[in-house]
Design a protein around this nucleic acid. Sequence first.
DNA 1: AGTGGTTAGTAAATCGTTTCACCCCGGGTA
DNA 2: TACCCGGGGTGAAACGATTTACTAACCACT
Lengths: 339, 339
Amino acid sequence: MSSIKEVARLAGVSVGTVSNVLNRPDMVAPETRMRVRAAIAQLGYVRNGSARQLRAGRSRTIGVVALDLGNPFFIDVLRGVEAAAQEAGLTVMVFNSDKDATREARLLETFEEQRPLGVLITPVNAAGQDERLGRLVARGIPVVVFDSSGRHNRGCAVAVDDVLGGRLAGRHLRERGHRHIAFAGGPFSVRQVEERHDGLVSVLTPADELTVIPLPDLTVDTGRTAAKEIAGLPPADRPTAVFCANDLVALGALQELTQRGLRVPGDVAILGYDDIDYAAAAAVPLSSIRQPREQLGRTAALMLFEEADELAGHEHRHVIFQPQLVERSSTNPQGAAAF
Amino acid sequence: MSSIKEVARLAGVSVGTVSNVLNRPDMVAPETRMRVRAAIAQLGYVRNGSARQLRAGRSRTIGVVALDLGNPFFIDVLRGVEAAAQEAGLTVMVFNSDKDATREARLLETFEEQRPLGVLITPVNAAGQDERLGRLVARGIPVVVFDSSGRHNRGCAVAVDDVLGGRLAGRHLRERGHRHIAFAGGPFSVRQVEERHDGLVSVLTPADELTVIPLPDLTVDTGRTAAKEIAGLPPADRPTAVFCANDLVALGALQELTQRGLRVPGDVAILGYDDIDYAAAAAVPLSSIRQPREQLGRTAALMLFEEADELAGHEHRHVIFQPQLVERSSTNPQGAAAF
DNA sequence: AGTGGTTAGTAAATCGTTTCACCCCGGGTA
DNA sequence: TACCCGGGGTGAAACGATTTACTAACCACT
């Protein structure tokens, strides 16, 4: 209820002085400072964020739009973001677009009104939102696109090299002797899916066989669907390994296959992507392609802060991380898991 | 960049009129309205949220503090909250206290400055934060405590009857013939854990045997630990069923037990709590106690809106939901899952 | 012509900070 | 003595919207 004015009155100083105590304490004489502090405490005064922000023109909050909070991958990325923000003394607001372009659009609108310090986003469809994001940037709100190659995008971006991830997957499975490999994932309009697939293909030889199982979505559920399809094939035509576009799909596939009496990795090996915590903890610990999740979030946040500081004359950068193979039991017949 | 003033100038009206077009369009003549709308479009004008909020005194955003975003349970609750908020035309900001009291305190401070329309929170420790929450309420920011009985709390609260959940679990396991049951969970200072345990105990007869496996935390990891302990027991002393304080623990236990060659539910039955999506999707579909997650979130949000509307003279309510048993394979020897 | 009731619009006050231009005063320098 | 300097403060002008009086214009009716 009480404003800076009442604090000033109680302390017997001007509002300007109170403001100074709040923002540049060493510009005011120790004795006065104490008096003001006492008044603040006595009144239980708390700064009004809106007023502050109105005056300052920019807030001390960054907005993060996650594509799917249900995917643990994003939660981990978020941790990285929050860690970086905390060090910088900023607040993180999280929003969930839930893969819904309409919701995303609404969130971006709110951002235009709210003018956060910056926005971190994994766009629903990289190409489509360019214009809206552009409007944010035009308003002086830096945007870092995250987990997207940013090919379509002229701002800052941080991503993981998904083609490389696909290659790592393919090489690993070939080394384990697999010559008929399935790829389960979709939709292919999602860059990540496409690139992981392409990476896999790029290391296969003409003699190898590839079965593509397109999925409408990357969830545990569609993973089960994929597994049903595989299990339904006559053993001769059945791939001996499945590379799943993410760990959710892999988990679903793992569960369905074992439930149908197929052994993993004996009958079918499974390789996931993301290395979420549930992957290591699955009934058969899942081999996976690890992305540096927290690191990803942290870097994205730092780039955002940097851009917010420099504002004009900022040079956009694209940071690409390297994924890494994590071998566990689901691709190792010996069962010896590298933990 | 452009403010309401420039819109007014361009449209040849006063700022008040522009404001009216924005907030009560039918109070201004159609012809003028059009002109103003055109000016808005031409300038790409967007309302400044801070200014608006400063004047209004309250924002159109509610803050949600989740205890652990890594737990899918909260994500689902969030969906309910967001659905309700969307219908009311409000924005939801999500924060993660991550079970850390310090972080929670910092978030509440931010709220005091930012003055959201209301706050939805699962406090880290119900008792401790009463005072801080009280300060929010004193500032006119309604708080609904969620997933907490609110015994310690004099505001609104929504929760699920965890004692009943424990009883349902106990009854079900006894009906399945189990006479030696383990409870895996902790810490017992968390109300939910305590009550689930108490519910279980309340339906056991003196002849039954109970093994309590205290855990520091409810995660997949500690679930595995619990399972190791159980697997380590000589078969005669081994409980034939484990009731886990949540599904994460149950999943961990399931994975560890099957990995060690114990069959679920043949050797050990497992019953979880929360019925998260991963539960149905586990290698052995998990029986669980379902909480109406989305419903929970939705109701909490509605109560919050209600309180925000009525403000003074509001009567606090406690809404308690009933949990429900969901039978799947992990407690059914026949393997017939009720899906 | 005068009164009353709409309707459409204006101008100014206000929300709570931050910041900028200015003032005052004691002490050091020329 | 005249001057400047700088530390410590003050006061008022922003920031951009909402809202509350208030006015002007018009019609209708006596």
